[in-house]
Amino acid sequence: MKAAVISISEKGRELSLRIKKSADFIAVERFCIRSYSDFGSRCFEDIGGLVSDIWDKYDAIVFICAGGIAVRAIAPHIKSKTTDPAVIVIDEGGRFVIPILSGHIGGANALAVRLSELLGAQAAVTTATDIGGHFSPDSFAAANGLIITDLNGAKAVASAVLSGERIGLLSDYECINIPEEITTEPDCNIGLYIGTEDKTPFPVTLKLVPKNIILGIGCKRGTDFTAIDILVRMSLHNADIPMERVAEIATIDIKKDENGLLQFCEKYGLELRTYAAQELMETEGDFSSSLFVKKVTGVDNVCERSAVKCGGGRLIIRKKAANGVTVAAAEKPIILDFERKIL
């Protein structure tokens, strides 16, 4: 998780430095108001302008200041619980850590708990399911890389849990550490279906779809972003796989600075994983082979091998090629853990 830590006072600066040095569970970048900055921080003068610049660039924003200042700074940018970053406020004395936005899906609640443990502070988590130690569909989905297809359905499940109602579960994937609130018995009024098929096993069904598709992409030097985008979208469409299920992009290391590929990753918010030719050649599996590609890159197939190398699963889209681009996809095997946390 990439976090921006913002401070506006000397005590806040000292606290942000403490977080930077000790919070090894997040990647911290410090932003200090110019009057109270140091060599290792980025300076700013207007907190509203700063938040406008960084809102979509970080997984979490941690304010070390009064809560009102933070609320006013983020108010113009709040859009949806599925896309907004986690937002946390810490008082400059380091006594309270308060998640104020994207507590479950964004991970603010879990981050607040970790930061409070680090600082010896009190985490002021206010979400009902967390307070009671109950199952939260939002937290479960976020921690296990699942896509919530219906926010109203997620609210219905959370409400049923708080009312003491048993929640049904039908999953196409292995599940472990299933809590007491969840049952695999079929006679439930409300429940979860985890999978990719068109199933509604309960009168009220919340469908959770795994985000576990790894795209392997190869391309000629200088290939335009549009050519990559078109082939990827066409390949996924033909395989009936929504783009939202893609978790990562993989390729050979000589393509790590390929502009079109980097633009593609940036557009969809995906991380690019790269591997050396020898690593790809040592990847086991049934892959198509090209002597020309091997002569140029040192590996006989970039897209299929990189997808499997990154995901460790099986190919579900074999090599597709057009306009100097090759695409393949692998489905990463998953085990769903109801006790898994985001951080």
Rank of each mutant, 00 (worst) to 15 (best):
A321P: 05
L272I: 04
R314A: 03
P210G: 03
A227R: 15
I254K: 09
V232Y: 08
V209P: 00
L270K: 14
D198V: 09
V308Q: 04
Q263R: 15
V299T: 14
K211G: 02
V296P: 10
I252M: 09
E248I: 04
G216E: 04
Y275A: 09
S235M: 03
K309I: 06
Q278V: 13
K220A: 10
V204Y: 06
I317T: 07
G269N: 11
L208K: 00
K207L: 02
N301D: 05
G285N: 09
T297S: 12
T251A: 13
D224V: 12
T283A: 02
N323L: 11
I249Y: 01
V246Q: 01
E271R: 11
L215K: 04
I213H: 01
L236V: 05
P201V: 01
K207F: 02
P201Q: 05
I316K: 05
N238S: 13
G216M: 06
E244T: 14
A276I: 02
A250H: 08
A307V: 02
K267W: 10
K319Y: 11
I214Y: 06
S235H: 02
L261S: 11
G313A: 00
V246G: 06
N259M: 13
V232G: 08
G324C: 11
G285I: 03
V299S: 04
L215R: 06
E271W: 05
K267V: 08
R233A: 10
T297R: 05
I230A: 06
T251S: 15
N323D: 14
E258L: 13
R273G: 05
A227K: 15
G324Q: 07
T196S: 07
G311R: 00
E244D: 15
A276E: 12
L261Y: 10
F202H: 00
